[in-house]
Amino acid sequence: MEAIMPAPLIINKEKLQIVPMGLADIEDVFNIESRCHSHPWSKKLFLSNFGTRYFSHILLADEQVIGYFVASSVAGEVTLMNIAIEPEVQGQGLGNILLQFLKDYSQAKDEEEVWLEVRASNLYALKLYQKLGFVELDRRKDYYPCKNGREDAVIMCCYLSL
């Protein structure tokens, strides 16, 4: 007998909201983090990223957290420290929406650049970042832990003031 797969959850992009992350969102964010990353951040690490230099946001669909990013800003440079979309709704352009929001928000704050690091094996993310104007500037050899040892981090930047 053939298994019946449930229909994918389709998000109505017209009803999405992006709002600042609050302490009450940590549980939902941590649950997404745990499903998305092989080496997830701890709740304690998420909690340490609140303060004047941090700006973290969540993506809501029907009042449900379906994505988030954690970023910091120092001297005109934004660092995207973490980002994820609920696995059940990936592939619908939601990461693009969240990243574009980060770029627009950063530009409105007169930031000059957005920096990030991504696993070299994460080809989907690399393609998305390139599509949004990020360029590879360097690599950190053996930066990320993985199943078979370690893998490189690709360092990327998007210049906002050009």
Rank of each mutant, 00 (worst) to 15 (best):
I97P: 00
L45D: 11
E88C: 14
I58E: 00
L94H: 07
H39C: 13
F46S: 03
I83E: 03
R139L: 01
A61P: 03
S42V: 08
L99I: 09
K109R: 13
V114S: 03
P40C: 15
S73M: 15
E33H: 07
F101C: 08
E111I: 09
S106K: 01
T52F: 15
R119E: 01
F55H: 05
E117F: 09
L102R: 02
S38G: 13
S72L: 15
A120H: 02
L98W: 08
V65R: 00
L60R: 05
N49K: 10
Y54R: 10
V89W: 04
N82S: 14
Q64P: 07
A61G: 10
S42W: 07
Y68K: 04
K141N: 08
E77V: 11
W41D: 05
D138R: 06
T79K: 13
G93I: 12
K44Y: 12
H37V: 11
Q92K: 09
Y105Q: 06
W115M: 03
A75K: 11
Y144C: 03
L47A: 11
Q130H: 11
E77A: 11
K43G: 06
H57I: 01
E136M: 07
L102C: 05
S121D: 06
G51A: 09
A71H: 03
A71K: 02
I32S: 01
Y68M: 09
G133E: 07
P87D: 01
S42D: 07
A84Q: 06
A108D: 14
R139G: 02
I85Q: 00
L80H: 11
R139D: 01
E113D: 11
A120F: 02
Y68T: 04
S38W: 10
P145M: 04
V118A: 07
Q92R: 10
G133W: 07
D110S: 15
S72G: 15
L47N: 11
K43D: 09
E86R: 00
F50C: 02
Y124F: 14
S72D: 15
L128Y: 07
H37R: 13
A125H: 01
D110N: 15
E113P: 02
P40W: 12
A61L: 08
P40Y: 12
G51V: 10
Q90D: 03
I85T: 04
G95N: 08
M81C: 12
V114E: 06
S56D: 09
Q130S: 10
D138V: 05
G95Q: 08
E77D: 14
S42H: 04
Y144E: 01
